[in-house]
Amino acid sequence: MTETQPSPPAPPIRVGISSCLLGHEVRYNGGHSQSRLCLNTLSHYFSFTPFCPEMAAGLGTPRPVLRLVGDPDQPKLVYTDHPEQDLTQQLQQGYANQLDQYHQLDGYILMKNSPSCGLERIKVYQPNGHPHINRGRGLFAAALIDRYPRLPVEEEGRLNDPHLRENFILRVYAHYHYRHEVLANPSYHRLLQFHSSYKYVLMAHSQVFYKQLGRELAEAHREPLDEVLERYFSQLMEALSTPARRKGHTNVLQHLLGYLKRSVEGEARQQIAEVIDRYREGKIPLITPLTLLRHYIDRESNEYLRAQRYLEPYPEDLGLSNRL
């Protein structure tokens, strides 16, 4: 009798992170900015790749305070007390080789307010010592996004918002799934399978992208595969770039309920519809109607619905839907 071989373990989900958030003492004052969320929770799901561009550039610790100066669109990095010393090229040389190694990352978590790692709202100072009205982006963060525009990137502080946290983690898993399920062995068939599984995730986030991608895939076989895959990936990540709203989730929940009209008796369907309506009104969290629908979908063994990533776009143990 032939024994069933176990499936090989899934590749780890690699996420880049500012070193100080993992407790590494690399900040300008020799300290760190340890993140409990990253260390105590996300580390169970992600394999973190830490990096500090300022240390990689040889600026050392402790070090004088750094700031950005000049044009907010193309700022320069200097020491606050010695603005005549331009450190921009030194920093860029420090992270250039590191960027080349990030093609296998599925996300990045940055330290806020940093002239190198800050994602947004970073002060850029004028010659008179006052900051510009327009804020900038840290030099490393800007280079990272320029090199990998589809990569999910977020500041650690913003992850304290439950909607932003859920959206970032959803995007990390979508990025990971697309790389391993489509790009690792590309074909039109694999792309269509992936799209089918993410159909309701897309519907919850954007009706526009949901319809647009469906139309494009209907004609995709007429175009070169590499062009189709590239365009789809860009549009997928753009569609998921903002958190889904309650209205979008309600629409998807009602669509899923519609598939059960022949297999679930009327009274039970009415109860599910009432739970969905209570979610729509903001009286209960998303996890409640989701759990109820999953129960009936599993009971009916509807393979099409069970394959929908919307029902579990990331591990349930993260508890993200409890706060939506």
Rank of each mutant, 00 (worst) to 15 (best):
L170M: 12
L105T: 02
H221W: 13
P152T: 10
Y198K: 00
H44F: 13
V153E: 05
D298Y: 15
E230W: 13
L21R: 00
P64D: 11
R150Y: 10
P243F: 11
Y102H: 14
V264D: 08
F48E: 00
L159F: 12
T41V: 14
E267Q: 12
A57R: 03
P11V: 06
A239N: 10
G70W: 04
K76F: 03
L59R: 01
R67V: 00
A244E: 00
R262F: 10
L256Q: 04
L213A: 02
P62W: 13
Y198A: 03
L225V: 10
R27S: 02
P9A: 06
L87N: 04
V252W: 03
E274Q: 14
N185D: 15
I17N: 05
R309K: 15
L257P: 08
P131N: 11
L293Q: 04
L311W: 06
L229D: 06
K76C: 06
G282I: 03
D226W: 10
H255D: 06
S196G: 10
R231Q: 11
H132R: 02
L144Q: 04
T242Y: 14
T41Y: 03
L99T: 10
T88I: 04
L170S: 03
S47K: 12
L320P: 00
A143Y: 10
V153Y: 08
R280E: 12
L91V: 07
A239R: 01
S18H: 12
N251T: 14
V15G: 06
G107I: 03
R215A: 08
V26Y: 07
V124D: 03
G60F: 14
I276W: 09
G94A: 02
K123A: 10
D73H: 14
H249I: 08
Q5D: 09
L240E: 02
Q92C: 01
E219D: 11
S241M: 09
D226T: 12
L66M: 11
L217W: 07
P224I: 07
E312H: 12
H32A: 04
P53V: 01
D106A: 09
L183R: 04
K123T: 00
F48V: 05
N29E: 09
P53I: 00
H255F: 14
F168H: 08
R245I: 06
L320D: 05
